[in-house]
Measured scan of single mutants.
Amino acid sequence: MSGIALSRLAQERKAWRKDHPFGFVAVPTKNPDGTMNLMNWECAIPGKKGTPWEGGLFKLRMLFKDDYPSSPPKCKFEPPLFHPNVYPSGTVCLSILEEDKDWRPAITIKQILLGIQELLNEPNIQDPAQAEAYTIYCQNRVEYEKRVRAQAKKFAPS
């Protein structure tokens, strides 16, 4: 494992614990031996107030490669969400998460999670990743928002 990646992720964890947006979660997972795995984080993004996503808490896994922060983490909703920019596998399609697009090593975990929260309610229809959600979003916004509200209710924190 890269010392650069681990040191950056340790800084990220410290900064997150000191200050993070209300309702968001970002925690490194534990290895079988109980030690912390900084390369694999369990996160959760709350649906934004005043949107059909409100009330939901959407679980996301963030996986970092050894060359982080040169390369972005892979962000994957578990379980996958109904959304035009979420692949059926759950992987998020967002330009700041793509090395050859808008990724920059200075982007923080907090910025990534806030960017994904923004994307939930403002899909990028130029870059669809899920045919069904994309089609319904474009053709029947009322039905799309109904499905999103049902999903938010399903993923409401207990």
Rank of each mutant, 00 (worst) to 15 (best):
P73R: 03
E143T: 07
P157L: 09
I45G: 04
S89R: 05
L9H: 01
P105C: 12
C75D: 03
R17K: 07
P123R: 02
D102Y: 09
G56H: 07
V27E: 04
G3E: 12
Y134K: 04
N37H: 12
E118P: 04
P21G: 04
V92H: 01
Y68D: 02
A15Y: 15
Y144H: 03
V86T: 00
Y134C: 07
A15S: 13
K14H: 05
A10S: 10
R149S: 10
L63Y: 09
Q117E: 09
P84A: 12
K18F: 06
R141P: 13
A15R: 11
K76N: 15
K14S: 04
T29A: 13
N124M: 04
Q111M: 13
A15C: 13
R13C: 01
A156Q: 12
P52K: 11
V92T: 07
L114G: 10
Q11E: 11
R104F: 01
D67L: 03
I96S: 02
P32K: 15
G23Y: 09
E99T: 05
K146P: 00
G23E: 09
P69L: 02
C75K: 03
N85Y: 01
P128C: 08
G23W: 07
F24S: 05
L57H: 15
V148K: 01
E145K: 11
C75E: 03
N124L: 01
K59D: 08
C138R: 13
D102N: 10
I45F: 07
K154N: 09
G23P: 04
F58N: 01
L81P: 05
R13Y: 02
T35W: 03
P105L: 02
T35L: 02
P128H: 02
A152W: 04
S95G: 01
I125H: 02
R17H: 01
I45D: 04
E54T: 10
Q117M: 08
F155V: 12
L57Q: 11
N140K: 07
L81V: 12
W103H: 06
Q126A: 12
F155I: 09
A129M: 00
L94N: 04
A150D: 12
W16E: 03
Q139H: 13
E42M: 07
A15P: 07
F58D: 06
D33E: 10
Q11F: 07
K76C: 11
I125R: 06
P69G: 02
F22I: 01
A106S: 14
T108Q: 15
P157C: 10
P123V: 08
N40D: 14
